[in-house]
Design a protein around this nucleic acid. Structure first.
Lengths: 179, 179
DNA sequence: GGGCACATGTAAGCTGTTACATGATTAA
DNA sequence: TTAATCATGTAACAGCTTACATGTGCCC
């Protein structure tokens, strides 16, 4: 998958649901895709300019002066479909928690315990936030058409967080001396 | 956590188990830590040179001409302990599978099905490879001291792969029309 | 009028990958 | 002898983050 293609996919995808400003795209990616995707402004604005130059998005005419929204074009939808068809780019794994666990013998026992405690807390926090999303999701605009797909990604988050919680609990019991 | 710190941690960790050449470090990271960590040569060699300059590793005198192994020093072990105590650097999430799933409505149904099929196959392959590792692990040198920690990381891999398999199966049933 | 959220952009710099260059050793 | 593997390194580049600069509109 080519240069910038990943960012383009996220942006075109966001715009396929409705027109947004660059700022709103960032917000949408952070709040909605946040548990499995990330983009910074430094990526979004240049990419958006490129997409506009290629005729894949266009600015809506009216609106307030500084805040014209970007809208996906027919060519943009076609490109999005093509991008989605490409195999996902695998992310090189860099799991700091497992790296530390693997070399746990070289760690101070307290440090290992602290780390596992925070993993536990983080997993539980994620499970809670997913529960909140699940109960509010049905009222989001676009739920009728897209909801089944949103639910699938949410389910992935729940399963991953649950697995992480199980691991942290088991591992604390196995490796952290009590008191 | 500072520059290169993550790579230093992995390298010092590997050398804390035994002396290795740069090439062997790469091999060890790929084969042993491969399911949760990644380093390329372009990272390893410059980092190793820095570590040697700082007196955290040193080359063993003898051996074959071009293949002197690096050995961790006392200062290196101290640094490793300090690095392991730092909180893990969180990896920005970029899950291409979930990105595609979220925008699944804009995808050709066949493409979604193909993607989920390959996720299923990949999860199963990972489960098989973990089973193989589990049965051979006890004979590895260092298992007696470090084995409990190695098992913990292996367990994390198993739980994650199992969760992924569950997700792919459920999602295929929910979103991919049969035949 | 002061602060905050909205909004857009750029430049510097770090991290990490890829491709290339080089050569030794070993097995077929 | 030729191919594969071992072994070390570098240079170019892609990708991404961070910090900064700049300005608008709204609410208290």
């Amino acid at each position: 998958m080519a240069r910038q293609a990943q960012t383009s996919t996220a942006i075109l995808g966001a715009l396929s649901i409705g027109p947004l400003t660059g700022y709103e795209i960032r917000q949408a990616i952070t709040s909605v895709l946040g548990h499995f995707w990330h983009e910074s402004f430094g990526q979004i604005y240049p990419c958006l300019a490129e997409l506009a130059a290629d005729g894949l998005v266009e600015t809506t005419p009216g609106d307030r002066p500084k805040s014209s929204r970007y809208q996906i074009t027919a060519a943009g939808r076609e490109r999005l479909r093509a991008l989605l068809a490409e195999p996902p780019v695998p992310q090189a794994p860099r799991n700091g928690v497992l790296l530390r666990t693997f070399f746990g013998d070289a760690m101070a026992p307290d440090d290992l315990g602290r780390m596992l405690t925070s993993v536990t807390a983080e997993s539980q926090a994620r499970l809670h936030s997913y529960a909140a999303i699940r109960s509010s999701m049905t009222e989001e605009p676009g739920y009728a058409e897209h909801g089944r797909y949103w639910e699938a990604t949410l389910r992935a988050g729940e399963l991953a967080a649950q697995a992480q919680l199980t691991w942290a609990t088991e591992t604390t019991a196995a490796l952290v001396p009590e008191r």
